[in-house]
């Protein structure tokens, strides 16, 4: 039986999840877009700017949604992106 989706039942806070900080090494990026495709929370988009090689690197748009899952780091063929976990309470 599907249960009802509630935002904040009883006004209690949601359980804590890890938060991640994303670091993009723009000059290494070749604009393949894998990190954008694989990010489960759609944190990244392709930026308008160019890097020195002439590619569009990704940019962070929803930093607060990053949970430091590391999908972007694992899928990046150029080792151009990584994340690290923020300490409890620290918000991006």
């Amino acid at each position: 039986m599907p249960v009802r989706q509630r935002e904040k039942p009883f006004g209690f806070p949601k359980p804590e999840t890890p938060h991640g900080e994303i670091v993009i090494l723009e000059e290494r990026c070749k604009g393949c877009g894998f990190c954008i495709e694989y990010c489960p929370h759609d944190v990244l988009v392709l930026s308008k700017k160019f890097n020195a090689k002439g590619y569009h690197p990704p940019e962070v748009v929803k930093a607060e949604l990053c949970v430091d899952c590391g999908f972007c780091r694992m899928i990046c063929p150029e080792f151009a992106i990584y994340t690290y976990e923020l300490k409890t309470g620290e918000k991006p």
Partner: peptide, 19 residues
Amino acid sequence: KVCPQIVPDEFNMGLSFRK
């Protein structure tokens, strides 16, 4: 504790969350 995914808890009929 470390799981980043929050899901409505079926046991509590969506009145709380689980990972």
